[in-house]
Design a protein around this nucleic acid. Structure first.
Length: 660
DNA sequence: GTAGGGTTAG
């Protein structure tokens, strides 16, 4: 088994009120509204590029510059004496270069300005720093800053902002004490940027200190500072503090709401993100593409397909255009929430697809067992000239490993060199996984030993998973030891090793591993499944008898069990690794959480409706086999999302081809 | 002249 990060199922929605959705229109994919939304080419322009205010307003001068004055011919007109320069002209030229992100033009204007008699104008010099920062050249901004003899608070703030906006948090942070030493007083602009830097730097303690500074300078209640502040706490994972800041803001706006929603989305707290989304609407704030992006991302992480569809419909209804960024989160949501078909529709309608869109689609294919399609799409992506990055290769390699495409996986790993993408440890994990699943355990071990970088717990974990699959106890134990050395707190490898021993009948070794876990305080997450029925999400744990419908559920499963046994299902008690007799093992096996969820869904959904179940661990082989039979005898499509991938069961088969 | 919120993997 490859060690993978779970699809954030740790905090599922427990209940979503249906009433919350009543005012929304029902979702249908191919409505004309949808079509309009997708085909509106303007939607893809993220509000930039338009020419700002004219540089020259004088009609005679306009004629002299062929009615279309570029910055360069304006400078030429100045040189020829046709225009009397003043700071305002330079200001306009710089504004335009900033707006259009034209660095070269900005440099020429800067040089020209330094040759003018206004070269010491503080106002324009600050504009120049801002221009360089917005054009992404922090080296130019820093140089211009260093060359200034006189600096004011705006000068410092412009540079701090430049670093903060260009992911150089520590440099932004370092400027702040220097600014204070100059005796300059920071304002709300300074704090808004500084807090952004602190949020990115994950520097909890120092962040709190700056919060105190905001209060001291009377800026903490400003909506920009407040939004930045609550965003900072949200990035630290401290939603309690983020909420306190939010509640304290007398003037809230879309941005402060979005920061809060995004905070919950990042934490995987989908239910809270939804609550805030509705609260925001009730308060009269319009959801923006930032909002939708966070909400779709929440739906993706908790696998909430129905809610995701509602929000998609809401977005269309509200007239919010599907810009590129949101399109990517939307397609990712459909793929992660179980509908690869809808993800594909969104992808096919994207006017502009970037590397993120392609990566999301590749991941979708990989997780839905469509390895061949992933490869075709990857080839298509290369053909149309989208540059693959390290994530792209990870997606393709994962698609290969999930589908047993050994040769293809090795081929694409080699292809990384041609695209100058350095393989990282995650890429090596997929190759170990690929070799291991194919049963080439010795080759996988040799591969690890020959790796040019130090193997991590995930690398050994992939070998351990393969050993479990192919029942190689000796190598499994060796791999497990390596994992324990590198990551002693992960319960997964402990459970795997214990199961390897137990399935070989080595009960005392299995018990020893369990004891080792207990002694070192490693806790195994209890296995749970969730199923969504009419906008309510129901949770089940194995052998749970606390559900109000427990008797019906039990009877239902007994009925199903008898039916599927008639057509060939044989319980595989290898997956109940308890020291109990055969009959009792079978009884335990019957009530794995996904079977309870499935029985419940069969009781509470109309015949023929697709059933979607989510799991917080990977499915066991017995449940996998049982659900295949259920899909046949009950004539249902059943989709199970586990931590690793999707299983689409239909008519006795699973999309994973029993390879997972 | 200077400010805050959003995507893909493991």
């Amino acid at each position: 088994m490859m060690k993978t990060r779970p699809l954030s199922l740790s905090t599922p929605i427990t209940h979503i009120s249906k009433a919350a959705f009543l005012h929304l229109i029902p979702f249908q994919f191919a409505t004309s509204a949808t079509e309009r939304s997708f085909s509106d080419s303007d939607a893809w322009e993220e509000g930039e590029e338009g020419d700002p205010s004219p540089i020259i307003q004088d009609h005679d001068l306009l004629r002299k510059s062929n009615n279309s004055p570029t910055s360069l011919n304006v400078l030429d007109l100045i040189d020829r004496g046709s225009i009397e320069p003043d700071p305002e002209i330079y200001n306009r030229l710089l504004k335009r270069a900033t707006h259009m992100k034209k660095l070269k033009e900005g440099r020429i204007i800067h040089a020209h300005f330094l040759g003018s008699k206004f070269k010491s104008d503080l106002f324009i010099l600050n504009t120049i720093i801002n221009m360089y920062a917005k054009c992404g050249s922090l080296s130019d901004a820093q140089k211009a800053f260093d060359e200034m003899r006189l600096k004011d608070m705006v000068t410092w703030t412009a540079l701090i902002t430049g670093y903060a906006q260009n992911d150089r948090a520590e440099e932004a942070i370092a400027l702040f004490p220097q600014m204070l030493r100059q005796g300059l007083k920071p304002n709300q602009f300074t704090f808004a940027s500084l807090l952004k830097a602190f949020g990115a730097a994950q520097s909890n303690e120092r962040g709190r200190q700056v919060h105190a500074f905001c209060v001291k300078y009377g800026c903490d209640l400003n909506v920009y500072v407040g939004s930045s502040l609550l965003d900072m706490y949200a990035r630290y994972g401290d939603m309690k503090e983020a909420n306190l800041v939010f509640d304290g803001l007398s003037c809230k706006n879309e941005v402060s709401c979005n920061a809060l929603i995004a905070g919950y989305a990042r934490k995987g707290e989908g239910e809270e993100a939804f609550k805030q989304f509705w609260k925001m609407q009730r308060a009269g704030f319009e959801a923006t593409h930032f909002t939708y992006s966070s909400v779709f991302s929440s739906c993706a992480s908790i696998g909430a397909l129905e809610q995701g569809k509602w929000v998609h419909a809401h977005m269309i209804k509200s007239g919010c255009k599907l810009i590129a960024f949101v399109g990517n989160t939307l397609l990712d949501m459909y793929a992660k929430a179980g509908s690869i078909e809808d993800a594909r529709k969104v992808f096919d309608r994207l006017d502009k697809s970037d590397v993120v869109s392609w990566n999301s689609m590749l991941t979708g294919c990989a997780q839905h067992g469509r390895g061949k399609e992933a490869i075709q799409r990857f080839e298509e992506m290369l053909r149309i000239g989208i540059e693959p990055n390290e994530i792209t290769f990870l997606c393709v390699l994962t698609a290969c490993s999930h589908n047993g495409l050994l040769n293809e996986g090795q081929f694409y790993f080699e292809l990384m060199k041609r695209y100058n993408v350095e393989p990282k440890v995650e890429h090596y994990v997929t190759i170990v996984d690929l070799l291991g699943r194919a049963g080439l355990l010795d080759q996988a071990q040799r591969y690890i030993n020959d790796m040019p970088i130090e193997p991590t717990a995930a690398v050994w974990g992939a070998l351990l998973g393969a050993c479990r699959m192919h029942r190689n106890m000796e190598l499994g134990a060796y791999a497990a030891e390596r994992v324990f050395e590198l990551d002693p707190h992960d319960s997964g490898p402990h459970v795997l090793l214990s199961n390897i021993y137990a399935s070989a009948g080595r009960w005392s070794d299995a018990a020893r591993v369990r004891k080792m876990m207990k002694d070192s305080g490693v806790k195994k997450e209890p296995a749970c499944s969730w199923v969504e029925i009419e906008n309510s999400v129901h949770m089940f744990v194995a052998n749970d008898d606390s559900h109000p419908q427990r008797e019906e559920i039990q009877k239902m499963w007994e009925k199903i069990s008898a039916k599927i046994k008639e057509v060939g299902y044989v319980p595989d008690t290898n997956y109940v690794l308890l020291f109990v007799d055969q009959q009792e093992r079978e009884a335990k096996l019957q009530y794995h959480s996904e079977k309870l969820a499935l029985a419940f869904a069969l009781l509470n959904t109309p015949p023929g409706a697709t059933i979607r179940i989510k799991k917080n661990i990977r499915m066991c082989g017995d449940c996998h086999s049982a659900i295949k039979f259920v899909s046949m005898v009950m004539e249902r499509e059943i989709v199970v999302r586990d931590t690793n991938r999707f299983h689409h069961f239909s008519n006795g088969f699973c999309s994973c081809g029993d390879y997972w």
